[in-house]
C-alpha cells in the first residue's frame, strides 16, 4: 500500500526544519544501508536507520517523529562514522526526536520516556542523580518491582547503592537551569 503524507506541504516544512537544525542534506543518502548494518539497536527498531532516512526523503516525516526508532537510538554515532556520504545519521534521528518532543508526540516507548523524565526530575530535586531513588521510582511506576533486583546484592556488597540521596548546596540554581528549557516538559 502506498501511503502519502497528510499534506505534502506539512511534510516538506517539517523536513526543511530537520535539515536546517541537523545541518544535513537528506537527499545525499542513497540507501546503501551501511548505517543499519552497523547499528546495535536496529533489531529493536520499527524502522531501521536507512529506512528512517528514506521516509524523511519522501516527506513521511510524521512516521519518523512518531517512530520507536527515534526514541531508542543510543546516539553512539557509529552510523554517522560509517556513512559513505558523511551524513550525520544519528544527528538526524536526534533532531527528529527533539522535534517530536516539541510537537508533543509522546506515545512511543513510554517506559523509556518515563525513565528519562524520572532521571531528570531526580536531578532537578537533588542537583545530582540519586541512583537508588530513580531505580525504585521507575520500578514502582512500571509495576515491575523486581526489575534488576539481581543487581542489588553485588551493589550493596560494593557499598555502591546509596539509600540517602546526595544533596548539593545550590539546588535553586540547578532548578533555575531547568526553567530555561524551551521544549515542552511532561
Amino acid at each position: 500500500m502506498i501511503r502519502f503524507p497528510e499534506s505534502i506541504n506539512a511534510g516538506a516544512a517539517l523536513l526543511a526544519e530537520i535539515e536546517k537544525r541537523s545541518g544535513q542534506r537528506l537527499s545525499a543518502c542513497y540507501q546503501c544501508g551501511r548505517c543499519t548494518s552497523t547499528c546495535v539497536a536496529a533489531f529493536a527498531f520499527d524502522y531501521p536507520p536507512h529506512r528512517l532516512m528514506r521516509l524523511l526523503q519522501v516527506g513521511m516525516v510524521r512516521e519518523v517523529l512518531a517512530s520507536r526508532a527515534a526514541q531508542l537510538c543510543l546516539d553512539c554515532m557509529t552510523c554517522s562514522m560509517r556513512c559513505p556520504m558523511k551524513l550525520d545519521v544519528a544527528g538526524v534521528i536526534e533532531t527528529a526526536k527533539a522535534v517530536a518532543d516539541e510537537a508533543g508526540l509522546k506515545d512511543s516507548e513510554r517506559d523509556l520516556r518515563l525513565f528519562r523524565r524520572g532521571f531528570l526530575n531526580n536531578v532537578r530535586r537533588h542537583g545530582r542523580l540519586h541512583e537508588a531513588g530513580l531505580f525504585f521510582w521507575f520500578n514502582l511506576r512500571t509495576n515491575n518491582l523486581f526489575n534488576d533486583a539481581g543487581l542489588l546484592p553485588p551493589m550493596l556488597r560494593k557499598k555502591n547503592f546509596h539509600f540517602v540521596p546526595p544533596r548539593i548546596r545550590h539546588r535553586r540554581q540547578v532548578r533555575r537551569l531547568f526553567q530555561q528549557i524551551n521544549g515542552r516538559q511532561g
Partner: peptide
C-alpha cells in the same frame, strides 16, 4: 558540582538540559 545530565538530558524535553 551538579549532574552533567548524562544520556537523558540531551535526549529529552528538546535536549537543552
Amino acid at each position: 558540582w551538579n549532574c552533567c545530565g548524562a544520556s537523558p538530558a540531551p535526549h529529552h524535553w528538546g535536549g537543552d538540559l
